[in-house]
Structures are given as structure tokens and as C-alpha cells.
């Protein structure tokens, strides 16, 4: 078992087989730097619980294909990314820090799926982006590539 500590001082015990899906922790273990608790100063406990849930489910992923558990995993993944933007970005940051390739891919794909075909207005609203461009600057950018902002597929809704 490996002990992880979140930035709000909560400790979690995780099976080594699960936790080595994180390249960062795998390297630490291999280098003998994981003898006691591994502090994760930029992951809070709420996010770490999500990440551990993912790691535990994806343990021995290579075997899933043989045992026919692929569909089960797919369903889990779909449910897993069913979270708000805040939480999704927290998991993306944690996965990036821990270097968990598959989790990164899953979460970035979910973000992309939500943004696909969305209008500029909808994306700004979804991601709460403050537009710091002046109206003139904005118009100039649009004029440079007008066909990127038109088309029947553009969706102006925010869900």
C-alpha cells in the first residue's frame, strides 16, 4: 500500500498496483522515494478522492479486454466525467501533475466534447471567460477568418 496526502492534510491508502498508473508516483517508488507518506501539495482531498476512484477502477486495465470488462469500464468512464467544469479542471490539473496519461485523455476529451460546435458566446459563458478584447479588436479577429464563425453546425446553447 502507498500513502498519499492531499494539500488539506488528509491521508489516503492506495494499492501500489493502482497508484503506479501515475508515472510520477511510479518513478518515485522505483527511485525509493516513496517509503512513507507522499505529499501532494497541489491536490485537494476532494479531487484526490476522484483520482483514486479512477485509479482503483482502472487497476489491471490490460486484463479488462480478456475478461470482457471493457463495456463496464466504458460505462464507468462515462459516469466518471459527468461532473461540473470546476471539478473537471481540477481533475485535469491533478492528472497532469501525477502524470496519469489515460485520465488526462479521458478528461480532455470530455472537455472537448462539451465545447464541440459551440458558439463563441456559449463557450465564454460555459467557461466563464471574461472577454478582455475591445469591440474593434474582436471584429478585426473575426474579419481575419470569418468562415470560422459561421456555419449550420454552430450551437449557441450552454448545456
Amino acid at each position: 500500500m502507498v500513502k498519499l496526502k492531499s494539500n488539506d492534510d488528509k491521508e489516503f491508502e492506495v494499492e501500489e498496483a493502482a497508484v503506479i498508473q501515475s508515472e510520477m508516483i511510479k518513478n518515485m517508488i522505483e527511485d525509493g522515494c516513496a517509503t512513507s507518506v507522499i505529499p501532494l501539495p497541489n491536490i485537494d482531498s476532494k479531487t484526490l478522492i476522484k483520482v483514486i476512484e479512477y485509479l482503483n477502477k482502472h487497476i489491471n486495465m490490460g486484463k479488462a479486454a480478456e475478461t470482457g470488462e471493457e463495456d463496464d469500464l466504458k460505462e464507468f468512464d462515462e459516469q466518471f466525467v459527468n461532473m461540473g467544469w470546476e471539478e473537471l479542471f481540477d481533475v485535469i490539473m491533478a492528472a497532469n501533475y501525477l502524470n496519469i496519461h489515460e485520465l488526462m485523455e479521458l478528461c480532455c476529451q470530455s472537455a472537448a466534447d462539451r465545447l464541440k460546435n459551440k458558439s463563441v458566446r456559449a463557450v465564454r459563458e460555459m467557461l466563464k471567460i471574461t472577454n478582455d478584447l475591445t469591440e474593434e479588436e474582436e471584429q478585426e479577429i473575426i474579419n481575419d477568418a470569418p468562415w470560422a464563425f459561421e456555419g449550420p453546425e454552430i450551437d449557441d446553447t450552454v448545456n
Binding site: M104, C108, A112, L115, I129, D132, F149
Partner: peptide, 25 residues
């Protein structure tokens, strides 16, 4: 990381992100 997300979108959508704000330009 934002580039990684943009890389998963249809390229037209990625181009359109340039007008979101200065950072996205």
C-alpha cells in the same frame, strides 16, 4: 493543457477560440 483540449476539437472550433479573450488569441 488548453492546447491539448483544443487539439481534440474540430479545427474550425479551435480557430474560433481565438476570439474568446486575449489569452486565447
Amino acid at each position: 493543457l488548453l492546447v491539448q483540449i483544443l487539439s481534440l476539437l474540430p479545427t474550425k472550433d479551435a480557430v474560433a477560440s481565438c476570439v474568446l479573450s486575449k489569452r486565447w488569441r
